Amino acid sequence: MPTTSRSSPTPPMPATDEDPTDASLIAASRTDPERFAVLFRRHAQEIMRYVTRRLGRDAAEDIVAETFLVAFDRRPRYDVSRPDARPWLYGIATNLIRRHRRAELRALRALARSGVDPVTEPFTDTVEDRVHAGARSRVLAGAIAGLPAAQREVLLLVTWAGLTYDEVAEALAVPAGTVRSRMNRIRRKLRDALAKEDHDG
């Protein structure tokens, strides 16, 4: 993966004739399947980073490959009124990750013990600096591991995938209000975990 100073995915550039939207690529791939390869080149790397963080490198390659195979099979049903396919792709990846709950919890518990993120430090950004700061990193990782799965998915799609609340709602096929209420509960739990650490420390 190329070195960069930020881990948040770069938003797609505005489409031009030379840079078509995801939706137009998917539409074109229905009659010209090779066009789908452009979608893979455009998004596979950021989804790989996301899945690696959740499951570790061993499972990530298989999950990403399967994500795009599923997307390819489902492309006739894609809603081409949605120009950005990232929420759709992250939704597929999230469904596949659900089969690997134990691996995800192992990765989070390893982070809780060591404070070492499975994705290299050059990808950190200011939002996540708090998650990578020594003991606080371990406390937060432990608290994230203890979240209900539905809350953990929302949190990691927002913080690690960089999706908006509306995009997370689209990815998970839930109302945007559900995403907001889950994030409110998550914030309270993480604040409580950090406050307890500060008090005990």
Rank of each mutant, 00 (worst) to 15 (best):
I47W: 01
Y50K: 00
T52G: 08
G56R: 06
R57D: 14
R57F: 14
A59S: 07
D62F: 03
A65M: 14
A65S: 15
A65H: 08
T67L: 00
T67M: 05
V70D: 04
A71S: 12
D73K: 13
D73E: 11
D73P: 01
R75E: 04
P76V: 10
D79P: 00
S81V: 05
D84C: 07
D84M: 07
L89C: 04
L89A: 12
Y90K: 08
I92L: 04
T94I: 01
I97S: 02
I97E: 03
R98Q: 13
H100Q: 15
R102N: 14
E104Y: 04
R109Y: 03
A110F: 06
L111A: 12
A112R: 07
R113Y: 09
V116M: 10
D117K: 06
V119D: 06
E121C: 06
P122D: 15
F123V: 13
T126C: 11
V127C: 12
D129M: 13
A133K: 12
R138T: 07
V139Q: 04
V139W: 03
L140I: 05
A141R: 05
G142M: 04
A143N: 07
A143F: 03
G146W: 02
P148G: 09
P148M: 12
A149Q: 12
A150W: 04
A150Q: 12
R152G: 04
R152Y: 00
E153Q: 10
L155F: 06
L155Q: 08
L156F: 07
L157M: 01
V158N: 13
A161N: 08
